[in-house]
């Protein structure tokens, strides 16, 4: 949405708008939701613990939110993000970019990835951006419930304690996790404002 422009010399950002119901899945280069296999059929694999996170996006009525575009972004197992400015970093994993996107048809998703490491004083986390018909973009970060470093994470510390558990990915068995993202209403997932922050 629009926001007031406090600094006079700044341009007003273009309004965000809904992704609509017809975001073409074919624009997602890799709709497989497997971040551990950027080149299929190659023996090289990324370092770290391969995990699967089963999740869903629900609306205010507890119904699955169909047709959402989901984007995931995370550091590798060493805690290093793959970016233009880190491409030649010695800890960058050439077999892991940490970015994928997916259009979920029915609101469920299953993300296969590498458990993120600790980056820049942060607890391991995965950034999730959601675009959907009827709304603008929302963005948040998901954490792992069994990580001690959550106690010192600046983002978790910035929100009320009772909301922190809503950002937790829970372990259900070895290498298997789950998370429920609630767009609105009771138990609403905390979302963040990256335009005003």
């Amino acid at each position: 949405m629009t926001h007031s422009n406090k600094e006079i010399n700044r341009l007003t950002p273009t309004n965000e708008d809904t992704v609509g119901p017809y975001y073409p899945p074919s624009l997602c280069e890799n709709n497989s939701m497997d971040m551990t296999s950027i080149r299929s059929g190659i023996v090289f694999k990324p370092l770290g613990e391969k995990i699967t996170i089963k999740g869903c996006v629900k609306d205010i009525d507890g119904k699955l939110s169909n047709g959402c575009l989901l984007e995931f972004w995370q550091p590798n197992s060493q805690g290093v993000y793959y970016r233009a400015d880190t491409e030649s970093h010695e800890m960058v994993d050439p077999w892991f970019t940490g970015y994928t996107r997916h259009r979920t048809k029915d609101g469920n998703f299953s993300l296969t990835t590498i458990k993120p490491g600790t980056a820049d004083g942060r607890a391991p986390n995965i950034t999730v951006t959601i675009f959907s018909d009827g709304i603008m973009r929302v963005v948040t970060q998901l954490f792992f419930a069994d990580e001690k470093s959550n106690r010192d994470d600046p983002l978790l510390l910035s929100i009320p304690e009772e909301l922190r558990e809503r950002l937790m990915i829970n372990k259900i068995s070895d290498h298997k996790y789950e998370i429920e993202i609630i767009m609105a209403g009771k138990n609403e997932t905390p979302f963040f404002d990256d335009l005003l922050s």
Partner: peptide, 23 residues
């Protein structure tokens, strides 16, 4: 109506901001 968050968005502390920009 079903999908718009009812709570205000939370501001991101400086120490976490950079991690919100996907490449």
């Amino acid at each position: 109506n079903e999908r718009t968050p009812r709570n205000k968005l939370n501001l991101i502390p400086e120490a976490a901001r950079k991690s919100f920009v996907p490449y």
